[in-house]
C-alpha cells in the first residue's frame, strides 16, 4: 500500500502546494464525504484534536496519585470507586467511563496493557505513547513482564509479585505507584511533579526528590 511517488521531500522543480501523504488524502476524502452527508461537524473535530493534543495528559493522573499519597481518605475512596472520584476532579469523559486504580505495594507491582488494541485511561493519561501500542509491549508484557520491565530499566525485587491488568473498551486501569521515601512534608503539587506517566502504567516508578 505504500504510495509515495508523490511525496515531496525531493527537490526537483515544482511550484504547487506540498502534497500530503496518501493516508492523509484518504482522511481528507472521508471528511469531505461525511461533511457533505451532514454526518460530521468539522468544528467538533478540531475541538477533539485540541483536547488530546494540548489539554489532557499525564499531569491529570499525576494529580490523582499525589492526592492519594497525601490524603488517606481520598486514597480509600479512589481505590473503592476511581471513576467517581476522578470525575469529581474534572477528569471524566471519553475512555474514562470505567476506571479502576490498582495500588502498588511492596508485595505486588501492577502493570497495565491492552492486548486487544490500545485501551487507555485518556482523561488521566492522554493518548498512549507508541510503545504502549507496539506488539513488542502488548504481547510480551503478559508473557514475560519482568523481562519487559527490565527493558524499561525497572528491576523488581524477587519477592515482589507482578500483576498485569488487561484493559478493555469497558474497563481501564491506572497504577497507583508507591510513594517514594523522603517525600514527607511535600505539597500535593510537589508530589505530583514526581509522578511520571510510566509510573502510572507500571513500566516505571516515581522520581525521587532531588
Amino acid at each position: 500500500m505504500p504510495h509515495d511517488h508523490h511525496y515531496h521531500d525531493h527537490d526537483h522543480d515544482h511550484d504547487h502546494a506540498v502534497l500530503p501523504p496518501e493516508p492523509a488524502l484518504r482522511v481528507k476524502a472521508l471528511e469531505t464525504l461525511l461533511t457533505e452527508k451532514g454526518l460530521i461537524d468539522p468544528a467538533a473535530l478540531d475541538a477533539i484534536i485540541d483536547i488530546y493534543q494540548n489539554q489532557v495528559g499525564p499531569q491529570n493522573g499525576a494529580l490523582v496519585v499525589a492526592k492519594a499519597w497525601a490524603d488517606p481518605d481520598f486514597k480509600a475512596r479512589l481505590l473503592a470507586d476511581a471513576t467517581e472520584v476522578v470525575a469529581e476532579l474534572g477528569f471524566y469523559g471519553r475512555q474514562g467511563e470505567h476506571i479502576t486504580v490498582v495500588e502498588n505495594t511492596s508485595e505486588r507491582h501492577n502493570v497495565i496493557v491492552c492486548t486487544l488494541c490500545s485501551c487507555y485511561p485518556w482523561p488521566l493519561l492522554g493518548i498512549p505513547p507508541g510503545w504502549y501500542k507496539s506488539d513488542a509491549y502488548r504481547a510480551r508484557v503478559v508473557r514475560e513482564p519482568r523481562a519487559v520491565l527490565a527493558e524499561f530499566g525497572l528491576a523488581l525485587p524477587e519477592g515482589q509479585a507482578v500483576r498485569v491488568w488487561d484493559s478493555t473498551a469497558e474497563m481501564r486501569y491506572l497504577v497507583l505507584p508507591m510513594r517514594p521515601e523522603g517525600t514527607e512534608g511535600l505539597s500535593v503539587g510537589e508530589l505530583a511533579a514526581l509522578v511520571t506517566r510510566d509510573s502510572m502504567v507500571g513500566t516505571g516508578v516515581p522520581k525521587v526528590p532531588a
Binding site: 482522511v27 472521508l30 471528511e31 461525511l34 461537524d41 473535530l45 484534536i49 495528559g57
Partner: peptide
Amino acid sequence: EPPPFSEPWHAQAFALTVHL
C-alpha cells in the same frame, strides 16, 4: 515525550473516529 500525534492526519483520523 513525543507529541501524541506525530502527523496531522493521525490526529484527524483519531478525531473523526471519536466524533462519529
